[in-house]
């Protein structure tokens, strides 16, 4: 019983305050290389929220920044689904207070993090944090770990969202990276751009922009492919009841 109480209070601490952890910089082999032929991406040290932002967290932000209320926000910045699941324009209601906030646009998620002096995590940061199992920083080649993540995709639609921060901490102490919700990233607007569109020769649009020509490594990593497909289908004003977010901050200068 004491153990159970201790566990519950630990979860509450995660869900109610800003709790983040430092993650060391590293060279990381991403599924989206940062440049043509680049094997690794250099990731600078950063801090990442332990848990997804909850409805209660987001409600505090909305109360302090009424321009982000449902009904007040400009259609440029959030679509009609924005916070539609809340009981009122400033109150999520008891049932969802501790659940991860969803139905928020990229603009709204960005504004929340900025109000905290933070930002959304970059894709590569998220991907590196999410590559960790509970025991090792990069478990991506572990078939058992991959299988566990894939199982989420076949079960998550049927269940209700768990509380933010209630899932098991990984190697870095970060929770909710898998099996809870999709997450906005800072550079979602770069996920459909090919690494080198200039290689394409003909003098029309595609030569210059190459959108839709995302080049991907490790195509057998289905869980990540699905996440990238989801993110690249979302415009910055879109909301979805399965898309939440967390924040990150820089540590020192970028290399």
């Amino acid at each position: 019983m004491a153990l159970l109480l201790a566990l519950l209070s630990g979860v509450a601490a995660v869900a109610s305050g800003v709790v983040d952890v430092p993650i060391s910089g590293a060279k990381f082999e991403s599924v989206i290389p940062e440049a043509p032929g680049a094997k690794t991406t250099t990731i600078a040290p950063f801090r990442l929220d332990v848990a997804l932002v909850s409805n209660a967290d987001f409600a505090r932000f909305v109360r302090a920044h009424p321009e982000w209320r449902r009904g007040s926000v400009a259609p440029l910045l959030a679509d009609g689904g924005y916070l539609q699941h809340w009981a009122s324009v400033s109150e999520p209601g008891k049932a969802v207070a501790r659940k991860p906030v969803t139905q928020v646009s990229w603009f709204a998620a960005s504004a929340y993090c900025e109000a905290r002096g933070a930002r959304l995590p970059r894709w590569h940061e998220w991907e590196m944090a999410a590559a960790a199992s509970d025991t090792v920083p990069d478990a991506r080649s572990d078939p058992a770990w991959r299988q566990r993540i894939l199982e989420w995709y076949s079960t998550s639609a049927r269940g209700v969202l768990p509380d933010a921060g209630a899932s098991m901490a990984n190697y870095y102490g970060v929770r909710d990276l898998h099996g809870v919700a999709w997450e906005w990233v800072l550079d979602v607007g770069s996920m459909m751009v090919s690494n080198d569109s200039r290689e394409q020769g003909d003098p029309d649009l595609k030569r210059f922009c190459g959108t839709g020509a995302l080049s991907l490594e490790q195509k057998d990593n289905y869980a990540l492919m699905m996440r990238i497909a989801m993110l690249s289908s979302m415009k910055a004003s879109y909301t979805s009841s399965s898309m939440g977010f967390r924040c990150a901050t820089d540590v020192g200068a970028r290399p």
């Binding site: 940062e34 603009f107 800072l186 751009v193 080198d196 922009c209 190459g210 910055a236």
Partner: peptide, 22 residues
């Protein structure tokens, strides 16, 4: 980043300092 998002323009800064962009 926000303006590109509002205009729905995909872009990416390459390590070389160049940009790939729609």
């Amino acid at each position: 980043r926000r303006i590109a998002a509002a205009l729905d323009i995909q872009y990416r800064r390459l390590p070389s300092g160049e940009f790939n962009h729609a």
